[in-house]
Amino acid sequence: MRIDKKDSLALVIDFQEKLIPAIDKNEILLQNTEILMKGLDILEVPLIITQQYTKGLGMTVESLQNVFGNSFQYFDKTTFSCYDDEIILENIKNYGKKNIIICGIEAHICVQQTVIDCMAAGYQVIVVEDCISSRKENDKKLAMHRMTQEGAIAATYESILFELTRDSRSEKFKEISKLIK
């Protein structure tokens, strides 16, 4: 099934200051996620950014906050699944989209639980494999396996951005191409 930008929103889960240093391949993860977020912004796909217990784990890392400048905003949560948080759930529902594009950490905890809950609620979920991670590589690998077994669609940031762009004649194509290069 094709993923269309008019039917999509994105969840950016818990890229926080105190978590990132412990995450496997965190530099590549942040580079990929920054490109993904910039591309989704260019394509006007709405983003919901979450933080797990901000008081203890800190803010979203600065490089990702900078994608939005002064318009950066987030939802604080204590639940592992974003779908279990009433305010985040209300925001997801208010967008009225059928596709949820997900990136974040940790893959085997908050990302996996969110994916499973969103799918159980009837959403088509796309997990951006090169924009998720965990502290341990094997945790990410097994989480990715479980999420796809549950029916989530696996994608890379490049594949999802070009699928949402759809046509090289699109006015957004040049901007997306610049991000990828």
Rank of each mutant, 00 (worst) to 15 (best):
K55M: 02
G56D: 06
G56L: 03
G56C: 08
G56P: 06
G58K: 07
M59N: 14
M59A: 14
M59R: 12
M59I: 12
T60K: 13
V61C: 13
E62T: 14
S63R: 15
S63T: 15
L64G: 06
L64H: 05
Q65A: 04
Q65V: 09
Q65S: 03
V67S: 00
V67R: 00
F68S: 05
F68G: 02
G69F: 12
G69L: 12
N70Y: 05
S71G: 05
S71L: 09
F72T: 11
F72H: 13
F72C: 11
Q73S: 13
F75I: 03
F75H: 08
D76S: 13
K77M: 00
T78F: 11
F80G: 09
F80Y: 14
F80D: 07
F80W: 12
F80T: 13
S81Y: 04
S81H: 05
Y83F: 15
D84W: 00
D84V: 06
D85R: 10
I87E: 11
I87Y: 01
I87C: 02
I88N: 00
I88V: 11
L89E: 14
E90V: 04
E90G: 07
E90N: 13
K93V: 15
K93Q: 15
K93P: 03
K93C: 04
K93R: 15
N94Q: 08
N94M: 06
N94S: 11
Y95L: 07
G96A: 07
G96E: 04
K97G: 01
K97T: 08
K98H: 09
N99W: 00
N99V: 10
I100T: 03
I101A: 08
I101M: 10
I101S: 08
C103H: 01
G104F: 01
G104E: 03
G104V: 08
E106F: 00
A107V: 06
A107E: 03
H108I: 02
V111T: 11
V111K: 07
Q112F: 03
Q112R: 11
Q113G: 07
Q113P: 06
V115W: 01
V115Q: 02
I116Y: 10
I116V: 15
D117I: 04
M119T: 12
A120S: 13
A120V: 09
A120C: 01
A120M: 10
A121V: 05
A121H: 06
G122D: 00
G122E: 02
V125E: 01
I126K: 02
I126A: 05
V128Q: 09
V128N: 12
V128F: 07
E129Y: 06
I132R: 09
I132G: 07
S133L: 07
S133Y: 04
S134M: 10
E137Y: 10
N138G: 01
N138P: 02
D139N: 15
K140R: 15
K140A: 08
K140W: 05
K141A: 14
M144N: 04
H145I: 14
H145M: 12
M147N: 14
M147T: 14
Q149S: 14
Q149V: 13
G151D: 12
I153D: 01
I153F: 05
I153A: 04
A154I: 07
A155K: 11
A155S: 13
Y157E: 10
Y157L: 07
E158C: 10
E158M: 12
I160N: 08
L161M: 10
L161W: 03
L161S: 04
F162N: 04
F162Y: 14
F162K: 12
E163N: 07
T165Q: 05
